[in-house]
Each structure stands twice: as structure tokens, then as C-alpha cells.
Write a protein that binds this DNA or RNA. Structure first.
Lengths: 104, 104
DNA sequence: ATAATATGCAACCTTTTAGTTGCATATTAT
DNA sequence: ATAATATGCAACTAAAAGGTTGCATATTAT
């Protein structure tokens, strides 16, 4: 979980995820073209995404293909959203209770 | 959005949010007790959360009360979750199409 | 008035992060 | 076989992040 949040903290890495959303299975070279930085820098970003289990990699000859891993991020985010959702519902329910008791 | 992801990237800051989930409106002193670091360090973390609009602050005399701001985080997360959700649905729909065409 | 409490400000240090560059290696095309 | 392409590895640098300490200030309690 910590790795996921750390991985998502960087704008370039979120951009990379976006690019893979748009088109899955892109090579390092392709992905590098989008970002204004060296290929090696992109490699590092992709490694971090990989270690957070947000993408996976498959070699085809000399090319390295990158695929999005939507499950973990989805789960994590869902958990957080639910948590906040719960809190909102509780706030609503508390409000309701207050209203009720003030009516009585 | 960048600020939110950056703010969430740190474990201590997520802990602080947790503590405010559990009990809203806590003082700096209270929040500091939970974390194994100086009060000043906690101040910095809270400032970052504040700048990401994840918490808000209200003074009561010499005490500084911290409140959770669930709306922005909820919106951001929801957006991300939906995005991935969409992707999953598309994958499902593609799968379905393939199945259908292979049956015909 | 004095002491205790709650917090802010600022300088400083260490580690991590994001990026670079140069060279090496493996695969594919001619 | 040679050249071109796609990528990896490693050393280095600059900036940002996370933390500390010492002292100042404002509010509350005695």
C-alpha cells in the first residue's frame, strides 16, 4: 500500500499510467517519447510502478512491453473511497439523529 | 490533484488522517502523541495536508484544532476508481464481443 | 504577576528522489 | 559480418523531503 501511494505521488508516473490506459502494451521507447526526460529516467519510473505492482512487463525480443495492472490500484482506491464514504454516511446519520432529537 | 497524491504518499500523514477519522477536531498536541516524532515534524505534516485541502484548521484560544476534509479526497479517489472501473468494464465487454463472434 | 501550556519560526542535517551522462549488451535488419 | 535499434547498468548531481533542535510568542491557570 505504501508503495502504491508513493508510486502515484509523481506526476510523470501518473502520466505513464495514463498512456498505458490509452494504449496498453507499449514499449519503453514509446513511453519515453511522451515525457520530457531521458529514457533512463523513464526506466526508473517504470520500475517504481512495477514494484508497486501497478504495471507488469513482458519481453518481446529486444522490446520491453508494459501492461497496466488495474486490480491493485482499484482495490486500494476502493478501500479509501469506502472509508470516506462511510464517514460521510456517519455524518449524515449523526445529523439525522440530531434533527430527530431536536424535533422531539 | 498533485498535492493530494503527494500528501497521501507519506505514511505518517495517512496515519494523521486516520486519527482524525477516529476523532475529528484534535489539537496538534493530541495528534503528536500518536507519532514517534517531534511536534514540529507533525506540524509540517499537518501543513502539507492542509495545503492539499485534506484537513482544515480552527483556532480555539491557544489550541489548534484539526478537522478532516473528506470531500476533495473523495472526489479524486472516485475519479481514479471510476477510470479503472471503466477499463475493467471495457475489458469485459471486449471479452464478451470475442466470445460472441467466436460462437457465430 | 508568574508559571505552565500550546504552538510558531527558522536554521540546520540526512536521506531520498528525480534526473543526468557514458558506456555495455542483446536483438534485429541489411 | 556489420550496423542499427532497444534496452540495461552504474556513477554522479541537484533538489526535495523528512526530521531535529533552540528559541520566541500567545493564551490560560494559579
Amino acid at each position: 500500500m505504501d508503495k502504491i501511494f508513493k508510486a502515484l505521488a509523481d506526476k510523470s508516473r501518473r502520466k505513464l499510467l495514463d498512456k498505458l490506459f490509452a494504449k496498453n502494451g507499449q514499449t519503453l521507447g514509446e513511453l519515453s517519447e511522451y515525457l520530457a526526460m531521458s529514457r533512463q529516467a523513464v526506466t526508473k519510473h517504470l520500475l517504481i510502478l512495477q514494484e508497486a505492482n501497478l504495471i507488469s512487463v513482458k519481453w518481446r525480443g529486444r522490446e520491453k512491453l508494459h501492461y497496466l495492472n488495474s486490480v491493485p490500484i482499484h482495490q486500494i482506491m476502493r478501500r479509501w473511497v469506502n472509508k470516506y464514504e462511510d464517514q460521510r454516511l456517519e455524518a449524515l446519520s449523526a445529523l439525522k439523529k440530531n434533527l430527530e432529537s431536536s424535533i422531539k
